[in-house]
Nucleic acid binder design. Sequence first.
DNA 1: AATGAATGAGGTTTCATTCAT
DNA 2: GATGAATGAAACCTCATTCAT
Lengths: 219, 219, 219, 219
Amino acid sequence: MSVTKESKARTKVPRAVREPQMLDAAVAVFAERGYHGASMDEIAAGAGVTKPMVYSYFGSKEDLYLACIDHAGTRLMEAVDEAGREERDPERQLWLRLLAFFRFVGEHRHEWRVLGREAAATGGPASEQVARARRRVVQLVGRQIELNARARGAEVVPGGEPEILAQAMVGAGESLADWWLDHPEETAEAMAGRLMNVLWMGLGDLVEGRLWSPAAEYS
Amino acid sequence: MSVTKESKARTKVPRAVREPQMLDAAVAVFAERGYHGASMDEIAAGAGVTKPMVYSYFGSKEDLYLACIDHAGTRLMEAVDEAGREERDPERQLWLRLLAFFRFVGEHRHEWRVLGREAAATGGPASEQVARARRRVVQLVGRQIELNARARGAEVVPGGEPEILAQAMVGAGESLADWWLDHPEETAEAMAGRLMNVLWMGLGDLVEGRLWSPAAEYS
Amino acid sequence: MSVTKESKARTKVPRAVREPQMLDAAVAVFAERGYHGASMDEIAAGAGVTKPMVYSYFGSKEDLYLACIDHAGTRLMEAVDEAGREERDPERQLWLRLLAFFRFVGEHRHEWRVLGREAAATGGPASEQVARARRRVVQLVGRQIELNARARGAEVVPGGEPEILAQAMVGAGESLADWWLDHPEETAEAMAGRLMNVLWMGLGDLVEGRLWSPAAEYS
Amino acid sequence: MSVTKESKARTKVPRAVREPQMLDAAVAVFAERGYHGASMDEIAAGAGVTKPMVYSYFGSKEDLYLACIDHAGTRLMEAVDEAGREERDPERQLWLRLLAFFRFVGEHRHEWRVLGREAAATGGPASEQVARARRRVVQLVGRQIELNARARGAEVVPGGEPEILAQAMVGAGESLADWWLDHPEETAEAMAGRLMNVLWMGLGDLVEGRLWSPAAEYS
DNA sequence: AATGAATGAGGTTTCATTCAT
DNA sequence: GATGAATGAAACCTCATTCAT
């Protein structure tokens, strides 16, 4: 008399399971289409639920977008933060974190995309949230730079506040990441190395043959 | 006695005048809202005409977008190209062009925006056009780097092909430009100087106090 | 106390009910205005729903049109086919089917209209579908003619392939049907009789006083 | 000093030349797209003039349409009328006029199309005009039938008023004409012969081998 | 006589959002 | 908790029609 269980197995999935599914689907769609181009229909379909479910969980399109920003920002911060936690040498710590950044970008393209500048074009109050999340990343990089400066004995970084340099660094990183997408034969290590070279040694040193290389200083 | 001219003079403006008006309005709206977020109604209103006029002149939203890309890309290229045409010293040429770039960005925020990465999210054949325009910019920067490397005696730039470095450089520039928008108290010279510092001397030099400065070398 | 049921009962009608409602409304509007002249607004209003519902059910105007063609074509075929299924005498079978055709036209003017030549003017892939549906009707008539010819001992119908004669027959039928619309005092039997006369006996016989009449042969 | 004449040769074309050009273009577009589907832009372009010219000549889209109907109707009437003017034998006269009809259709597909049933679907006051034009054709055919009946000694045509038979005849003719478009290997003579067979001899005679043939009776 | 420029109204289609079950 | 059904608003685009030159 009992019906087989699989006939209608889509009922009563706990929130803890449904929510991440939706977030993932939303991140993927937002990354691919942008905020305005994304449709709640596609997001719901991608998560395997119906639209009213999405609304019941996240309230509105904008709120869902904010949740995506939070989600992606937090995960990126965690990955980068954890990467150099044990390391005491600031230069090596920077390297480890740059590497973690590129690995994150490589493995979570979608997440990084929604943090990118494209997202800021929304215009509504979501722009603020995106800007805040991005600023957190930039600040983290800024602190790292400051640390390195202090380690070398400089009280402040000359030539610009650390945050400005960090801004440039993050932009360079994102740009390189984009280039990476079209050249998947490169490794995260190679990409991180390039960024380290550009920023750490400067073009000036590069053209005179002074190369920064992880192998030269760390086993 | 005479009314201000702008109040309601919307009759019979020749095409050569209307078209740039529309292009400007379109660039402004696309920059502010992104491709998907922009509405033809708003663009038309911004140009002081009705929608059908815009369609009669540009055919479709996508075609209008392409025209904007072309317009902005060409103007940027011209500005940067002309800046260093007379200069023979590659380093100073790079500086002049960086400066021209920032001046262009400062004076044509909208134009630069539509060339940014956001534009690539359209998905249609417009993405190709945007990518092409951006690649032209990157290639120009790449050639500049190569020139500088050769001037210093290096056959090739170590640490990565010039195009990759250019990619990072453009990204850093765009990121700095964004930061600039929130800090308008800075001058284009200061911004260009910062980018020059980051890229030319390298963080490594910066933290040891070696500063590149235009004032030091050029009167 | 109770209000009439039809006033505003627009909530939650299941798909199996709404779809035919929409089809009927669409057939009516397409018949009256033609494909280009019909507006989705009017169709939706006719079905008592809003436009998005129509799109959600049928996808696009052209798809809705195709569905109408299918619907009408199938119903006409069924009516005509069923009419003579039990009859063994070919002549009487033809008569029964002609009668069924006119009855269908009389009771479903709209359906017949959308199958008419007007439909072919769409230009898109819908024209193909309309042509196919019409061809099915013509083929059915053609087979009927062939049957009659064989029953009278003729191997082939002289004077033209059956399909061509069927083509003329269908055209004559449609034209008579149109005339009928302006002269509703006539019965379907009278109309079918006229067509039978024209086609069966030929003008040549008619002018010599040889009349075919159902009453003369069938009680 | 004098400019070459060809540079701007589109000024001052007399009305007697322009008007037929426009009518022809309009007939072509209306025939291909139907009333609603036709655009004044396409018509103007097809005539090689600008839209305001069309409006100055014909007033409105509907008026232009009416003019097309008139034009086509008149030309068809003239062609058919002239065909049998000298002929005294009614049967041969019918044959000559049927032939003229098919020749007209073959050579002026567009004109015939706008007289077809498709045109009646406009809904506005134009429908009346179309109906009137069509009725003129049907009446002409009707008179022809009556003439033939009288020639054979019948006072009235039994089995239906001549106009009804004419209606069927015209419908059959139009349908055959449509079929003809897909089978251009047939000649106008063959088509007219088929229609003559269907209508004159009747299926009843055909299936018994009694064929009407122009060669048998007329050289 | 002729036209480039311009528009208001209306077309199809999509989308975020909400009921009623 | 979950969903099919439904909608209002707004998007892109077209078209018949009219001025001003």
